[in-house]
Write a protein that binds this DNA or RNA. Structure first.
Lengths: 166, 166
DNA sequence: CATTTATGTCAGCCATGTTGACATATTTCG
DNA sequence: CGAAATATGTCAACATGGCTGACATAAATG
């Protein structure tokens, strides 16, 4: 069975490593051209996405999700606010906070980008069975750091971010 | 059944969109600390990875995989060559080419990084059934641009890159 | 021999990450 | 109440890794 010495105990899973690279590259590449028409980059997309999905998000929470510094965030957030994609409101109980909300314009852009990416995802899931979505989801969840998994899932499953009527 | 007007025809698949972000973030984050001890970044990792997996790769081919410019590649490649992780040999038939090879030192680093990432992948696949690997693979392949899929698979399935005995 | 090809290199710019220091308003605690 | 902690903003400088444009060299090819 086993070939004995000389055979690595856990050989790298090269195909998944490389496919993750190719898949992610194309996935995040989808929105680029649309973003470019607004003078935005991927950093703007990430901010807009998480704010849209989590209306009322605190700046500190956003920093925690993105794992960047407040100085990095400030640059792109300022542009998104200046150009009317995101607005900031004082926290109701704690007036030091600036809760973040996507404007209708911001929500529209976020939805447009997500729809584009969803086409790709739908196509990929179509090649799996009926359990495809659940399987892909379980795989991706398993790839997240065990420590941050609950926090990530809390975000993912939070439905308040579905475009609200106002 | 259908709720009629007002319901989006293809709602964004938010969970997969976000889980891809979190999963990829942690996945590529694994090697960071090791890379940092060599003064390398993720760009070095990508180059070293594909060269290790594809001994004798031409510069033009590498540029094609990474989709960056030769000027960007030059910066990191030069460091990898200078520090003995990659070596360049004249093409046997076409002496203009600089075929790229990982040195034993380079292979060792690539293997170390891949092994680290593989632990994460193995953990994730373990949560799926026996078909987990095949399913994850099919999902990721489906996420790649239809056009470049064959080329990507050609690379992924090429076995010459498995650490050769010399 | 002229042209094309494979690669390298110089110079400068841009996007997005970092650290460190400091400012402001507000809340909380002794 | 007043001191300390907290949430956020901002200035300045720097690092990484993308980009474009221009030009150089050697080798292959027609």
């Amino acid at each position: 069975m086993d070939q004995g010495a000389g055979v690595p105990v856990d050989p790298p899973i090269w195909d998944i490593i490389e496919l993750l690279y190719f898949a992610y590259r194309d996935f995040v590449g989808d929105p680029d051209s649309v973003l470019a028409t607004f003078g935005f980059g991927r950093a703007h997309h990430r901010v807009l996405h998480f704010v849209t999905r989590n209306p009322g998000l605190k700046v500190a929470e956003l920093l925690d999700i993105l794992r960047i510094t407040k100085q990095s965030l400030a640059r792109v957030l300022k542009q998104l606010v200046d150009e009317g994609f995101i607005e900031q409101r004082e926290g109701e109980t704690d007036r030091r906070q600036r809760r973040l909300f996507a404007t209708p314009k911001g929500e529209a852009l976020a939805l447009r980008l997500a729809t584009q990416q969803t086409r790709r995802i739908r196509r990929a899931l179509a090649e799996l069975g009926p359990e495809g979505h659940a399987q892909a989801r379980r795989f991706l969840v398993g790839m997240i750091n065990a420590g941050g998994r609950d926090e990530a899932l809390h975000f993912v499953d939070q439905v308040t971010g579905v475009p609200r009527r106002r």
